[in-house]
Structure formats: structure tokens, C-alpha cells
Write a protein that binds this DNA or RNA. Structure first.
Lengths: 237, 237
DNA sequence: AAGTGGTCTAGACCACCTT
DNA sequence: AGGTGGTCTAGACCACTTC
């Protein structure tokens, strides 16, 4: 019961990466060439590189090549710690791109989370968050229109939503609860994040409320599993 | 740019699962049969089912079959919340199996985390945690022998380590810091958890300390990505 | 047009479980 | 022995990027 060949190959390549055989950002030889070098089929090479991609060591781009990844980026979940803060403390430029805004009635599940009657108006915001040039996460958040009316008119390109809510509505928002799980990327999310569909993502489900517990925002953030690490700080000290 | 066939197939099967076509725990038809039914190659079926496995909907066992998974198990990270507590509150029987105990000098990296001189004695414990009959996580934890001397003589099969430390040493331990990331399973861990190597795991790196900040325990927990969901509660209220 | 990775098919063999 | 999923090879075609 030996180790499969593709994992052995992945280890060999990982070792080479660790020894600095290729610099970060550099392109590896194409699959076919690696296959010849190591005496295996091209598919076996592809499998090994997929494995390393899941591990965050390389990233593969169709029609372009396989590239050495930089290290993972830290994202910190903590009370009153926003995405902007997290990225800023990594020393990376924090950008976001709004990829979708819509206004629609809440379905039953969403209404329950936001504690509003089903059918009440909600605003859904889809944003891609960058850390430097790396698309790190896709956020799909739903806002209770009863609490922050017409939010879609105030969201800008470079401001944190929390700041908008503070300045436009005079409300303070706190993170109430987060759940973290692994989910494979569906094609839509994969496209926004530049990963293969099926790539493992860290899916964070969160609820933000006013200090009195009134739900304001509910939704999901999909972090690239190969690029992000979530830091949970429990300052109960 | 149509959706790949294996994802379409995965969606169809996921829909069928959602409609209750098979009950939890039941075996799906073998790959070959599904391939005939849907008019695709066996490999395409395998890929679709791998995808659903990553999503936590099914689990595949070599030589046995593909089975419908129960829902995910919640694991809660919070101050003073131990694994035992988390599993107990899910209403599942909490068991653990010790799969490795060793005593050895700390290497540089570990010594830094535990804030002890390199070469000091540490005890490494490897345990598999079950929730009911499901192996949910492999824990690989290192204990500072200076703080809890000869811990390996006190660890039992059914007790939480935290309880051992409290009763044998009179020390209270608190979770100081956690980091969560995705890592593919290496063959060793995969074997213990009963998943395929390369399957995505939630890797939690944690440091536990005494109330005064002295490090006691440092290590990793590898949770099955298909079976676990991590709940982070930030009670800053 | 040429080169890259992604998908699909096909057939073979293997490892593991059950009988 | 027979059935299951896991791996490897092989060849084909496709989608995307670059020239």
C-alpha cells in the first residue's frame, strides 16, 4: 500500500519549492514537461499540482501556467474588527469591488435570521475583497432595510460598510456570531475569486447586530482556502 | 463556457439527496451504475461524488460504497470551552482514542511557542476525537513538561486533558489564541479520520495557557472538513 | 497560431471490504 | 470470488491566454 504516485510527486515538488527552486510568483514548467521529467502521465502531474494548489503552495491559471504562491494572508475575526482593519494590519492595500447590488423581499430563512417578517425588504450586496492584488474573499451580505433604509444608495467603492452605517445612520454594528466551515467553490464564486470550481473555501456565516441585539446584517463570506488563514482571538483575559 | 458535466451531475445528485431520494446512512448506487444511468464515464461520476464528498453530503469508502452523510457537527470555539463540552452539547457521545504518546526534546519552533528553552522536554499526545461513531478530529498537542511534569502518566481514555490538568496539577487552562485554515489531509491524518488523503481539513492551531499567560499546550487539531462546522462566539457583549 | 491547463472518455490494474 | 472505490495511463478535445 505505497503512497500514490501523485502525492509522492507533490511532495517532491513541495520540497523543491521549500528549497527555493522557484521564486514566489514564478511560473513552474508546464504539466507536460513535468510529466516527461518525472516519467508519469500528464494527468498525474495535474493531480499533484491540484493538491499543491489546495495546500496553497501554487496557483494554476488556465491558458497561462502554474505559479508559486506567496504565503497565506491572515484574517482576524474579533469583536469590532472589520475586514478593512484585518487587511490593513497585514500591510496590504485594501480594495473592494462591488459585483452585485439588489433589493428584494426576504425569503423565510433570511427573514428568520434578520428577525423580520418574511417578505420584508432586504438589500443584498456582493463584494470581492482584495488584499493587495489577490482576490481574497467574496462577501454576500443581506441588510435589513428596516434598520438601514436604502443602504444601496450609500455604499461606495472604498469604504467599509460598517463605516457607512456609522456615518449615514449613526448606528454602531457589532459581530454577534460566526460559523466557519469548508465549502467547495461553485462556479460563480470561483470565477470571482480566480480559483477552480470545487476548490475548498472557508465559508464564514455571520450575523451582525446593533448593540441591543437587533440584527442588521446576515450573510456569508467565502475566503480562498489556499490564501487565507483565520485568526480567532478570544480576549477573555 | 458551459458548466462541466461532473458538476451538473453533482447538482442532480445533490438535488436528489435534498428530496430525500436516499436516507442518511444509506448507500448510493455504485459508480459504474450511476455512470450507465447518466450516460457518462465512470470517472466523471467519481469526480462528481468526490465533489459532494468535499461538500460533506456523502462519504466514500473504498471497497464498500458511497454513503449519505448526516448533517455537519458543530464545534464551538470559545474561552473555557473544551472539546468535550462542544461534543456533549451536540448530544453526541464523546469518545477519544489515544493513538500516540511520546516524550522528546522541543525543537526550535515548538520551544518558541511554549516559551521554553530549545531542547526542554515536551510530551506529545495524539488523539482521535469521536462524536458518536464519527471520527471528527485528530489532535496533535504538545505539552510543556516544566508546567505539567510527566503528563503522559495521567492521561486516560475518557477524560478531557483539561480536567486531568485541573485535578492532577491544580492548574486552570484557558484558550489564548486560535488560527483556522484549510489544509489537505496527509495520508497519516487521513487514515485516522477515515477520509481520502488530500481531503480538505479544518486545521486549528491553538495555544492554551495558564491564566497568567504561561504556555501549557500548543498544537493542531485537524477537523474533517466534510463533517465539522466551527462556531466562533465572541461574547464581547 | 501556439501554448497552457481543464474535462471527458476508455481501459487497465490495484487495494480494500464482504461473502 | 466478486464488488467497491482509487490510481494510472492514453488520447482527444476544449477554453483561455499570449503572441
Amino acid at each position: 500500500m505505497p503512497t500514490p504516485r501523485y502525492l509522492e510527486l507533490a511532495d517532491r515538488i513541495a520540497d523543491a519549492l521549500g528549497r527555493g527552486a522557484w521564486a514566489a510568483g514564478e511560473r513552474l514548467p508546464p504539466d507536460g514537461e513535468l510529466a516527461r521529467e518525472h516519467g508519469v502521465n500528464r494527468h498525474t502531474v495535474a493531480r499533484a499540482l491540484e493538491h499543491l494548489q489546495r495546500k496553497g503552495l501554487v496557483s494554476r491559471v488556465r491558458g497561462h501556467g502554474t505559479f508559486v504562491s506567496p504565503g497565506r494572508l491572515e484574517y482576524r475575526i474579533a469583536p469590532n474588527m472589520s475586514f478593512s482593519n484585518s487587511v490593513a494590519r497585514m500591510g496590504r492595500r485594501n480594495r473592494q469591488l462591488i459585483v452585485g447590488v439588489s433589493r428584494h423581499p426576504a425569503d423565510a430563512a433570511l427573514a428568520e435570521q434578520l428577525r423580520i417578517p418574511a417578505g420584508s425588504a432586504v438589500v443584498t450586496l456582493e463584494r470581492v475583497r482584495y488584499a493587495g492584488d489577490v482576490p481574497l474573499a467574496l462577501l454576500r451580505k443581506h441588510y435589513s432595510d428596516a434598520v438601514v433604509p436604502a443602504l444601496e444608495r450609500h455604499v461606495g467603492r472604498f469604504v467599509s460598510t460598517r463605516a457607512v452605517i456609522r456615518h449615514r445612520y449613526g448606528l454602531e454594528v457589532v459581530r454577534a456570531r460566526s460559523e466557519i466551515e469548508i465549502d467547495p467553490a461553485d462556479p460563480t464564486v470561483a470565477g470571482h475569486l480566480g480559483v477552480a470550481s470545487g476548490a475548498p473555501l472557508l465559508k464564514i456565516t455571520s450575523l451582525d447586530t446593533l448593540p441591543d441585539g437587533t440584527p442588521v446584517e446576515y450573510g456569508h463570506a467565502f475566503f480562498r482556502g489556499d490564501a487565507a488563514r483565520i485568526q480567532v482571538t478570544l480576549d477573555d483575559s
